[in-house]
Simulated scan of single mutants.
Amino acid sequence: MRTADFDYDLPEELIAQAPAAVRDECRLLVMDRATGALEDRVFRDIADYLRPGDLLVANETRVMPARLLGAKRGTGGAAEVFLLRECGGPEPRTNRVAFWEALVRPGKRLKPGAGAVVDFTDAAGRVALSAEVIDWAPGAQRGERVARLSTELPSLDEALHAVGHTPLPPYIRDYAGDEELYQTVYARRESSAAAPTAGLHFTPGLIERLRAQGVEWATVELEVGLDTFRVVDEDDPADHVIHTERYTVPPATVEAVGRCRAAGGRVVAVGTTSVRSLESAWDEEAGTLLPREREATSLYILPGYEFHVVDALITNFHVPKSTLMMLVSAFSSRERVLAAYAHAVEERYRLLSFGDAMFLH
């Protein structure tokens, strides 16, 4: 198995640059994962493929306003701080002070120990938030820094919402539409740097329609990091070190999976982040799914992996040679998935985060 085995021709013009006009009117490529048989449908037709007793499990994380555009104190030069994850620091966290691992630009002018501070102004032109670069992040691979965030507003949350922007994937350029369309309709706690995009296609009406036909709904939370967009650089994918993310599988979801199994239903993961959460929560020794609360996972799913919890998968189309291509291939086969992608390209599906969806069952 080589990384090149998971490559495919991705025409740039098929990379969706904006969401569908109506969430559940995007296209849906349905694939029988055992045979590779394909059907071209519309996303709301997912109801035709789900049965009473099935369980949908979705990642309810919300994307943070993690992209901060400001000016370096003292020089006024443009600077960007991209928040990745909160971390510990040399002083206690308060409502107005916290420490975050972050990516910064320009990196050469925002080095730890140089007293580099970036100020961020709100719509009225007042400094609402400041970030002081104080250290290198532990194990930094891309120059990640530790930044001390501080504000004079009542809380950092208020400050972030006054100055921050919802980050979009690097392949989406110049999108100026409603940033809320990069959030799922059921998103709750802000904890991610990227959206669990398979869920973008659901509407409240579609969820209620599915519930009415006997399909249960449960949630997990996986704090999606930017590394989800990384391409595997190593020739052998087994040499790749996958990123670590925090995930939660609440007791109510464990119970819902138990009811689903008892009723003979299928556990349908909404997105690869839901897959990683559920499969990470499987306890091999106990032979069962266990609740988890913000535990770390670096589960790397490659072809040959045995799925313990997930029976079907709703997912978007993914970047070539990515860990997500490998996960989807593991759920069926590399050959069948690549054939499905070739079909999607030929039929001019819209691809990647703002694009159309697949259902593998």
Rank of each mutant, 00 (worst) to 15 (best):
R2Y: 11
D7Q: 10
E12H: 14
L14T: 07
L14C: 11
Q17W: 07
A20S: 13
A21K: 15
V22G: 14
V30C: 06
L38I: 09
L38W: 07
D40V: 10
R41D: 05
F43I: 11
F43T: 07
R44W: 09
D48Y: 12
D48T: 13
L50S: 09
L50I: 06
R51D: 14
R51M: 15
P52C: 01
P52F: 06
V63I: 10
A66T: 01
R67N: 03
R67K: 09
L69Y: 13
G77E: 11
A78G: 13
A79H: 04
E80V: 06
E80N: 09
F82M: 02
F82Q: 01
R85K: 10
E86N: 10
C87D: 03
G88T: 10
P90G: 09
P92G: 09
R96K: 13
R96H: 10
E101D: 12
K108W: 08
R126C: 12
L129S: 00
V133T: 11
G139C: 07
R142S: 15
V146D: 01
V146T: 05
R148Y: 01
L149H: 01
L156Y: 03
D157G: 12
E158I: 12
A159I: 01
V163I: 02
G164W: 04
H165Q: 13
P167D: 03
L168Y: 04
L168P: 00
L168D: 01
Y175L: 03
E180R: 15
L181R: 15
A193M: 09
A195N: 02
L200I: 05
L200A: 07
H201Q: 12
P204H: 06
V215Y: 08
V215T: 10
W217T: 15
W217K: 14
E221Q: 14
E223S: 14
F229C: 03
R230D: 14
V231W: 05
V232Q: 02
E234K: 08
E234I: 05
D236R: 14
D236V: 13
P237A: 06
V241M: 14
H243F: 01
T244G: 07
A252E: 15
V254E: 05
C260S: 09
R261H: 13
A262E: 15
T272E: 02
R276F: 00
R276T: 00
A281L: 00
W282F: 10
P291T: 02
S298V: 06
I301H: 00
I301G: 00
P303K: 07
F307M: 06
A312H: 05
A312Y: 06
L313W: 01
F317A: 00
H318G: 00
S322Q: 07
L324P: 05
M325G: 12
F331N: 08
E335D: 11
A340E: 09
R350K: 04
R350E: 03
R350D: 00
A357S: 13
M358W: 06
L360T: 00
H361A: 15
